Amino acid sequence: MIAPVPTRPPLPDEIRALIERLAPGRWPGVDVDALAALAVRCGESAAAVDRLVTEIDDAHRRLGAGAGATHEAIIVGGARLTGPASELSALSGRLVAVGHRVHAYAVAVATAQRDMTVVAAITERELLRADLRAALGDGTSRIVAAGAGAGALTAVADDLADRAHEAGRMDVGGGDTTVSSGAAPAMAGAAFPRVSVVAGPATGRHPCVASESADRDHSWLAVRALALQSSLPPETAGYVRIAVGAGRSADGTQVIVVGTSDPYPYQREGMALERDDILVGDGRAPELAVVDHLMSQGAAVTAIAAATPSTPDVVERLTADDIEVVTVDRHDPTGPDADLVGDGHDD
């Protein structure tokens, strides 16, 4: 049985408008319910074809034992109609495959709609807080909040494009009908806010560092770290640090680890972790907690990002292990929305 698609939260008009202002044209306006219904109909049609095959087989079995050219021709004809290489069998398989792929696409769209709604809601809250800070003379808070929201929304949209491509070519032979919500988004081009990469030395690579790390765009890690940091309650945001790292396990699966500077892995109120995220923390710098966890599990460390600047000793440790460090320029004056990313003051 095909599982239901993820539930999406309500989308108020003001949240929809904010998404369009921060990430114009990136909202996936696809009818998820229609896609899910189509996937069900494909399964029902495949079941109807299977019943037809069974009826034809039963009709031939009722012939019983016999001999002669006519009997032989009927048996051969029946095998051509319902055998493994028959058109009916192929039709049933194609219907099942289409149903699984349509369902995977519906899941991807529903997940993107849910994530973009949540990101926009958090961004709206941060913009309201930024307005208060602006009244106190902090003109950069609005830039940071809008930039983080725009980057996160763009990352979700780019992730949807990747998942849609995967859904179109997924192998349904094993019956896998889902798309993992923990898949990491790939951001194309230079996304706002501005990100920079500090690569480790070219030699002396740590055996648990992914060899392809320098050839991939990991700017989405910085956006994710900044979004998580911004989601912390105000009373803790000043002293709790968040880092996000990516690694690859021995079987090639990507692993996402979220680190906190708390003395234990405490998911504070507001921290929106993905289903497959691993939360770690041991009181040290969150970057080190992430890296040490990945290495302890035998995963190759790909890259890491923190929402706030890492201390020099942490950067030294990461670069010594040739780990890509992605950072965010929180004061980048450029952005996708001139109204939101202005000087932080009302006209």
Score class of each variant (00 low, 15 high):
Met170Pro: 01
Met170Lys: 04
Met170Arg: 08
Met170Phe: 06
Met170His: 01
Asp171Gly: 05
Asp171Leu: 02
Asp171Ser: 09
Asp171Cys: 03
Asp171Gln: 03
Val172Glu: 07
Val172Asn: 05
Val172Trp: 02
Val172Lys: 03
Gly174Met: 06
Gly175Val: 02
Asp176Pro: 00
Thr178Ile: 00
Thr178Pro: 00
Val179Lys: 00
Val179Asn: 00
Val179Asp: 04
Ser180Ala: 15
Ser180Phe: 00
Ser181Gly: 15
Ser181Gln: 13
Gly182Ser: 10
Gly182Cys: 03
Gly182Phe: 00
Gly182Trp: 00
Gly182Asp: 09
Gly182Met: 01
Gly182Gln: 00
Ala183Pro: 00
Ala183His: 00
Ala184Asn: 07
Ala184Glu: 14
Pro185Thr: 03
Pro185Cys: 04
Ala186Glu: 14
Ala186Tyr: 09
Met187Ala: 13
Met187Asp: 13
Ala188Asn: 09
Gly189Leu: 03
Ala190Trp: 02
Ala191Asp: 08
Phe192Arg: 12
Phe192Asn: 09
Phe192Leu: 03
Pro193Ser: 06
Arg194Val: 03
Arg194Pro: 01
Val195Gly: 11
Val195Asn: 04
Val195Ala: 13
Ser196Gln: 06
Ser196Ala: 13
Ser196Leu: 08
Ser196Tyr: 03
Val197Thr: 13
Ala199Thr: 06
Ala199Leu: 05
Ala199Ile: 00
Gly200Pro: 08
Gly200Phe: 02
Pro201Leu: 10
Pro201Lys: 06
Ala202His: 01
Thr203Trp: 07
Gly204Ala: 10
Gly204Trp: 02
Gly204Tyr: 04
Gly204Thr: 08
Arg205Cys: 03
Arg205Phe: 03
Arg205Gly: 03
His206Ser: 14
His206Gln: 07
His206Lys: 01
Cys208Gly: 14
Ala210Val: 05
Ser211Thr: 12
Ser211Gly: 11
Ser211Tyr: 04
Glu212Phe: 14
Glu212Lys: 01
Ser213Cys: 12
Ser213His: 14
Ser213Asp: 12
Ala214Thr: 13
Ala214Leu: 11
Asp215Gln: 11
Arg216Met: 14
Arg216Tyr: 12
Arg216Lys: 14
Arg216Pro: 01
Asp217Thr: 10
Asp217Asn: 15
Asp217Leu: 04
Asp217Met: 02
His218Asp: 15
Ser219Glu: 08
Trp220Leu: 07
Leu221Ile: 08
Leu221Cys: 09
Leu221Glu: 07
Leu221Pro: 07
Val223Ile: 12
Val223Met: 09
Arg224His: 10
Arg224Pro: 03
Arg224Ile: 07
Arg224Ala: 11
Ala225Asn: 05
Ala225Glu: 12
Ala225Lys: 04
Leu226Cys: 05
Ala227Pro: 01
Ala227Arg: 12
Leu228Tyr: 05
Leu228Gln: 03
Leu228Asn: 04
Gln229Tyr: 04
Gln229Arg: 07
Gln229Asp: 11
Ser231Asn: 07
Leu232Thr: 08
Leu232Arg: 04
Leu232Ala: 09
Pro233Thr: 06
Pro234Gln: 13
Pro234Val: 11
Pro234Cys: 02
Pro234Tyr: 06
Glu235Gly: 11
Thr236Val: 15
